[in-house]
Amino acid sequence: MIHNVVYDEEDIDTFLELTRKIDNTESKIMKKLLSVQNRISLIANIDPQELKAIIYDLKFIKYDKKDLVVDQGDISNAIYFILSGEFSVFVGSHKVGILKARDTFGESAAIFQEKRNATVICSSEQATLLSFCIDEENMDFCAPALATLYKNLAHQINHKLEGVNKTLIQIT
């Protein structure tokens, strides 16, 4: 016999009050994401209602200089959009690039569920990121969003490859 806990009205009120607070926080951050949606190339042009359904764990995160954002080899499904500040990217101990405001990172590891292929560290005095995750389980119900997301991702990868090609041409 499992003895279930019985909650009274006062307990229910506490739960409802907490839920209201959580919903308020969530919707505030979602509003912020929607206001910058088209600046984040990965999620640009996705219907806002569908975006709400496939995005979760939205957070604003503040970093100080030398703070670690992602560690190479780490498993995490968060995608980051830089609102302010600068971040250095390292592969092993080699610095391979700098990311600035309006840049996005972490999307490949998140979508392909792979380990992080680089370490990202805050290099400005202070920086702010918008972090979010994509709920693939909800993707079945939001097929157009999925299509746009992958199209955006392909576009982004293509853009990065073009950059690499240009660098290679310059070197050779």
Binding site: Y7, I12, F15, L16, T19, I22, D23, E26, Y56, D57, C133, D135
Partner: peptide
């Protein structure tokens, strides 16, 4: 029933 009837937040994390 408790979670759904009180519309509790169901985190995905």
């Amino acid at each position: 029933d408790f979670i759904e009837s009180h519309k509790l937040y169901q985190p995905k994390q």
